[in-house]
């Protein structure tokens, strides 16, 4: 009877385990396996190279690390400005302003748009020949500031980062707003009776209770931004001269040129970096909670 019970339990779990094994464990193992081979993706023969791909990437591939730096810069901007904007807007909406539902909907429109579409629209805005941005700058007398935003290596990365932040702040906004709405109103009333002004209420009530939410938002921001690709591909393709190259676009370039072993090794290293970043963030968050 007990045996039957266990068998039936195992049978219920089996489909989920199988799905997990096929769609998660197998690709993971296969990716690692490919990364220690040299393979063009076509030939039936793969050449085992051990950790050569890893050594080459870590020690000699400057472009890969430059692409990581680029992604890091966009991530840093998103972590600060994008999330700050999201927080400010969430706090304003949480205070109960007029047309609250309207704003809530409007702020959530950019994240649901396709990255490629957003990229193409903004590419049009930034265009040096007929872009709206340069037209506006000329109209208000700032024609000296007009430039080919995406073709100038000094402005290209920042231009892409701005679009990414515009597209992404809605996620943070929704999560932060839902977090703010879970804070009991009584706490604000009590702190108000104790003489706390709005700033003190925010600092002593909102911030400590929002730390788990800040943590989730920052984890999602880091993971989402480091893996940026669709905007880059549709706006600059990693150009000008590699100024906006990010890890995924670089990996994609190797994949497209049939260097699957090297590309998957980069993917593994990139995955490890993201994993370590997440661990670091969890630790920081735990420390903050204790404080």
């Amino acid at each position: 009877m007990k045996k039957d019970y266990h068998i039936s339990n195992a049978l219920f779990v089996l489909p989920a385990v199988l799905m997990f094994a096929i769609f998660t464990i197998y690709p993971f193992v296969k990716t690692f396996q490919l990364s220690v081979y040299e393979w063009d993706g076509i030939s039936p023969n793969m050449k085992f190279v051990g950790f050569k791909n890893y050594i080459d990437i870590i020690l000699a591939d400057k472009i890969f690390w430059k692409s990581m730096t680029n992604a890091g810069v966009i991530t840093l901007l998103a972590l600060t400005f994008q999330n700050l904007l999201a927080l400010i807007l969430a706090v304003i909406i949480d205070r109960g302003i007029k047309f609250e539902k309207f704003f809530r909907t409007v702020y959530f429109i950019p994240p649901i748009l396709s990255g490629v579409v957003v990229g193409l629209v903004w590419k049009w805005i930034y265009d040096g020949n007929y872009g709206i941005l340069n037209t506006i700058l000329s109209y208000i007398g700032l024609e000296k500031c007009a430039t080919s935003w995406l073709s100038n290596p000094k402005t290209a990365l920042l231009s892409v980062a701005i679009v990414h932040m515009w597209k992404g702040f809605g996620w943070g906004f929704i999560i932060l707003l839902s977090g703010l709405q879970t804070i009991p109103r009584e706490l604000y009333e009590a702190s108000s009776i104790d003489g706390a002004d709005s700033f003190k209420q925010f600092y002593y009530v909102t911030v400590p209770l929002m730390i788990p939410i800040f943590f989730i938002v920052s984890i999602l921001t880091i993971l989402g931004t480091m893996q940026i690709f669709d905007l880059i591909y549709s706006m600059t393709r990693g150009g000008p001269a590699g100024a906006t190259e990010v890890p995924i676009s670089y990996i994609y370039r190797y994949m497209s040129n049939n260097e699957l072993g090297y590309a998957t090794a980069m993917a593994v290293i990139f995955g490890i970096v993201l994993f370590l970043l997440s661990i670091l963030q969890i630790k920081i968050s735990r420390k903050l909670k204790k404080v």
């Binding site: 265009d127 020949n129 007929y130 995406l150 073709s151 600059t236 150009g239």
Partner: peptide, 21 residues
């Protein structure tokens, strides 16, 4: 070279020529 040529995909370049820019 036209403005922004190094990040133009060919479709954009075709538009610049077709619109006589």
């Amino acid at each position: 070279f036209a403005e922004g040529i190094i990040t133009m995909i060919n479709k954009d370049a075709e538009r610049v020529f077709a619109t006589e820019k």
